[in-house]
Simulated assay, not measured.
Amino acid sequence: MSEAWGWLQAKCLIAWTVDQSTVEASTTTRRGREFLCHGARWLRAVERLGVDLVSELEFTARPQFLRGDYETAALTAMKEVEVRRRAGLSDSLVGTKLMQEAFGPPKNPSDQASRSGVMTLT
């Protein structure tokens, strides 16, 4: 039992309760409540991706990764980082607007040769 209690503390799933008079008093942390909702798979993903990400990836790729959708998270991260960098586009463009700007028709006809992607609209 003490090993299980120690594991909960080590994973920051429980914490000491400051408003109680006994040292043994503890409460479930925010992370503990997330763990209760999402389970061990979520906790393993959080521990693997325990780094700060650029804002675009924080709101696009991290949620997919935490849900266990690793392939989609990797593809999303690649699109956000690689497409933006290769096209030399602003950080203010995201999602569909980013892809339209990167792969759409060039604003300057001389840029046509530098475009290697093709965008199709359906």
Score class of each variant (00 low, 15 high):
13 L>T: 08
111 D>N: 12
23 V>A: 15
38 H>D: 07
110 S>P: 01
13 L>C: 03
62 R>G: 01
17 T>R: 13
103 F>D: 08
77 A>H: 07
75 L>Q: 14
53 L>E: 02
8 L>S: 01
6 G>E: 07
80 E>K: 05
91 D>A: 13
94 V>W: 06
107 K>P: 10
90 S>Y: 05
44 R>E: 15
81 V>E: 02
68 G>Y: 00
2 S>Y: 07
29 T>H: 02
8 L>N: 00
103 F>P: 01
17 T>P: 01
3 E>P: 10
74 A>S: 13
44 R>H: 15
76 T>P: 00
77 A>Y: 01
68 G>N: 12
85 R>G: 12
91 D>Y: 08
97 K>V: 08
20 Q>S: 08
120 T>D: 07
30 R>D: 11
120 T>G: 07
53 L>A: 05
118 V>L: 11
28 T>W: 11
109 P>Y: 10
35 F>A: 03
60 T>M: 01
11 K>A: 10
10 A>K: 07
27 T>Y: 04
21 S>R: 14
100 Q>A: 07
62 R>T: 04
91 D>L: 09
84 R>Q: 06
86 R>H: 14
96 T>V: 13
34 E>R: 07
81 V>F: 03
117 G>T: 06
58 E>R: 07
96 T>K: 14
89 L>Y: 03
76 T>Q: 05
86 R>S: 14
98 L>S: 06
94 V>S: 14
44 R>P: 03
28 T>G: 09
107 K>D: 15
90 S>W: 05
93 L>F: 02
29 T>D: 01
84 R>E: 09
31 R>G: 03
90 S>K: 03
51 V>K: 06
112 Q>V: 14
114 S>E: 10
12 C>F: 09
